[in-house]
Design a protein around this nucleic acid. Structure first.
Lengths: 340, 340
DNA sequence: TTGTAAGCGTTATCAG
DNA sequence: CTGATAACGCTTACAA
């Protein structure tokens, strides 16, 4: 037996030919009535639709895609579902895809190259019509597979130097640099940075932070880089580390919102005034940021637009095959709040 | 042209027959080497795998599923991706599915029957091998489609009276009732309930809350039901409503964690002591609950287990077709913290 | 506008 | 253990 198991014999086993018989037309007329209704006379169309209804026929997309070499499925690879920041991007994608008759297939793949490879390979085996990847670092094998497949791809998580195909994103490096400069402008002088070591996007953010320090003339001062674990606990770790090892730090820039909130709570526990004792700034702009007390200064990214534009580009590529502008930088915005 | 557009011609256009030629075997041997390696002599198997590798062949699951009437894709319908509570369930599902060679297709469908119908129909058209639905209320059409398809289904969001097929869940009603009784046991007498009006699961929670009040002998007192909007803002609305209309309320039970946190923040803004002025309890147990100050008393559900067991049941049904116990109640646990 | 015939790329089946 | 052949259910291409 194969690795995969038995499944339904397809909805009730009603095929297009059954519908055709019932409606008194040929299979092709049924096919047309379903896919290109305009090409079938209203009367026959009605007959077909009635037959479909009464037989409970469900169009077989497997057969359709195999035969037509087209697919109405778009694959999306997200780094994680735990982080609700992606929800907006998914919504942006869906809002474009759905009216166009496409369906979104979503998979998560921790920022692990092997995992991504497996997921991409699976999507390609499924012959998806296009792929949206919320990641810009891929294994050589993954790259080879993607290129060989000829499948349209949009990358999302960052602005890569060598895109696979199309890109809709913002610059993690640029955004982090801007926020660091912003903190400096607010008067903070000893700015620390906390992030997850294993995340490529967090790494880029760290680079941006370091670039800003150099530009500010703090390049020679001892580094204030803090590697933390994920979740709220990571933010607490950062504050604890500052208390123990970098007590003169006056601002903490967190590579993610959850870290920032964790840091804020830890400050409260230690009775540290925010931003008096320690200012806090973060990346992304979860709804939570403006509700905590004090509200946290953060970087807002166009999460919804990223999704919408990605889907639009993908469809344009699939349908016209001609997308002149293949990289879109949607930028970022600093949202100034009470925490810094 | 069809509603859906052009797509890749399938990875490089390399077919199984090309692999077969290259390896000097028949297509069937290639098929076996890929699906049931044990049934092919090591030597031929190696030849095939080498040919696959050198040609960059990607197995066409469309054709495989069409021909075999099996599918290695499982569809999952979640109410929303904004709520990270589902991340754990997804992980539980993936952990079972992946090693079994299955792939998860995820879609979101707000608790809107029409939307769910469209999504289910799409999955059935895709001829998925099984379906996991995080919802227990379905439109008649959806039910008919599901039943007619014969596709194995697991429902997750609640314990329905008339399951479609299999169920792995907890009782929203039971859990809410238990929490309300718990609050009463802690000495609270004027317990309010806040939830989203349009959510079937929140409705069941409300029922449980009301049942508890009756059992406590508070059935005749004026109701303290508060309909709020979603997000942190909803929690704030609840507190504002209490301040304006139900000032003697001593405890607030929120149908969701985000509401509870929003309520907590609003209390702080109003300088209300929690739990002194108002106790707060919530449903689900997001990580955030134990990090806010004060930490919030909540109901913990086996989110990971729900996913794991659902996937296991589904696979058992697909492979053996014999799953004696078709409904699993995983219960809930009250996590007592400082907020109540 | 509708129909006919020949695939799409794989696997089930049965023979060797 | 391996191979030949006929599906799987649909659409393309062409003919009427």
């Amino acid at each position: 037996m194969p690795a995969y198991g038995r499944s339904a014999e397809g909805s009730g086993g009603v095929r297009m030919r059954d519908v055709a018989e019932r409606a008194g037309v040929s299979r092709m007329t049924v096919s047309r009535a379903l896919n290109e209704p305009d090409k079938v006379k209203p009367k026959l169309r009605r007959q077909v639709l009635e037959a479909v209804e009464s037989l409970g026929y469900v169009h077989n997309h497997l057969a359709r895609s195999l035969s037509s070499k087209r697919s109405n499925v778009i694959g999306l690879v997200l780094p994680s579902l735990e982080n609700s920041i992606f929800a907006l991007t998914v919504k942006g994608i869906s809002d474009v895809l759905r009216p166009a008759g496409y369906q979104l297939m979503l998979t998560e793949s921790a920022d692990d190259p092997e995992d991504e490879e497996r997921v991409i390979s699976s999507f390609l085996a499924q012959r998806v019509g296009g792929l949206i990847l919320h990641a810009t670092t891929h294994s050589p094998t993954a790259l080879r597979m993607l290129r060989a497949s000829g499948t349209p791809v949009v990358e999302n998580g960052d602005l890569p130097e060598e895109p696979v195909d199309m890109v809709v994103s913002y610059s993690n490096r640029g955004a982090a640099k801007a926020m660091t400069m912003h903190l400096a402008r607010l008067g903070y002088r000893k700015i620390a940075f906390a992030g997850l070591a294993r995340n490529p996007r967090a790494n880029e953010r760290q680079r941006g932070y370091l670039e800003a320090l150099v530009e500010l003339g703090h390049g020679d001062e001892p580094k204030r880089l803090i590697d933390v674990s994920r979740g709220f606990g990571g933010g607490a770790e950062a504050v604890a580390y500052i208390a123990a090892n970098l007590p003169d730090t006056d601002a903490l820039f967190c590579a993610g919102d959850v870290l920032a909130v964790g840091a804020l709570f830890e400050c409260k526990r230690r009775d540290w005034d925010v931003p008096g004792r320690l200012a806090i700034a973060s990346f992304d702009d979860l709804d939570l940021m403006r509700h905590v007390i004090p509200a946290i200064t953060s970087l807002r990214l166009e999460r919804y637009e990223i999704g919408r534009r990605s889907a639009e580009m993908l469809l344009a590529q699939i349908n016209n095959g001609d997308v002149p502008i293949r990289t879109i930088d949607l930028g970022y915005e600093i949202v100034q709040r009470a925490s810094a």
